[in-house]
Amino acid sequence: MSQLEGAMAAMIKVFHKYSGKEGDKYTLSNGELKDLIKNELGNFLGIPKDQGAVDGIMKKLDANKDGQVDFKEYFVLIGALTMLSNAGKGQK
């Protein structure tokens, strides 16, 4: 498996590690998203100290306004963080 294929597999694996603990196994609830952010994205986002921070992230990600984050919406977060990380390295 190439490095990029491994990264893609890891993104999928992380999503499914947290999804489905509270309902639909193909979406992230607010609580699942908080756990994912805290455990997997703490270095990029800082660990949210309050539920309001996660609520704000959830509101921005939840494009279809169903109260959950599906894989497509999750990928928007991962893509945006990747772009920010790249920009921080002096790349455009």
Rank of each mutant, 00 (worst) to 15 (best):
I47G: 10
D55E: 15
H16V: 01
D24A: 10
Y26K: 14
A9Q: 14
D50S: 13
A53P: 07
L45C: 14
Q51R: 07
K60R: 11
K21G: 07
K34S: 14
G23Q: 10
M11Y: 02
I57V: 15
D55G: 07
K38R: 13
N43S: 15
M8T: 10
S29N: 05
G31E: 15
S19P: 02
N43K: 14
V54R: 03
L28Y: 01
N43P: 12
L41K: 01
K34D: 15
L28K: 02
N30A: 10
G56E: 13
L45S: 05
K60A: 15
A53M: 12
S19W: 00
K17H: 11
N39D: 14
Y18W: 03
D35S: 12
K21Y: 03
H16P: 03
Y26Q: 12
D50V: 13
A10W: 02
L28D: 04
K17D: 11
G31N: 15
K59M: 11
K17C: 06
G52M: 09
D24L: 02
D50W: 05
K17N: 10
A10D: 13
G31L: 14
N39M: 03
E32P: 01
A10N: 12
Y18M: 07
P48Y: 13
M8E: 09
A53T: 15
L41N: 02
L28F: 01
E22L: 09
K34L: 02
D50K: 13
I37D: 01
G23L: 09
K34I: 00
K13H: 09
L36E: 04
Q51I: 00
V14F: 01
G46Q: 09
H16D: 07
A9E: 15
L45T: 10
K60C: 05
K21M: 11
G20A: 08
D55Q: 13
V14N: 02
E40V: 07
S19D: 07
N43D: 14
G46K: 08
E22T: 12
E32I: 03
G46D: 08
G20H: 06
M58Y: 05
D24G: 08
N39P: 00
Q51C: 01
D35G: 01
K34F: 08
K17V: 00
L28Q: 03
A53C: 09
K49R: 12
Y18I: 03
G52A: 14
S29F: 01
L36S: 04
L41F: 13
D55A: 11
V54L: 06
E40Q: 11
K34W: 07
K60L: 09
M58F: 04
Q51S: 14
E40H: 03
N43M: 11
M8W: 06
E40W: 02
D35H: 04
D35F: 00
K60V: 14
S19M: 06
F44I: 06
K17Y: 04
S29W: 01
N30R: 14
I47F: 08
N30S: 13
Y18D: 08
D55H: 05
S19N: 06
A9D: 13
A10S: 12
K38S: 13
V54M: 04
G52H: 12
V54Q: 05
E22G: 04
I57P: 06
G52N: 14
G23W: 07
V54S: 07
N43H: 13
M11F: 09
I37M: 09
K60M: 11
F44A: 12
Y26T: 15
K13S: 15
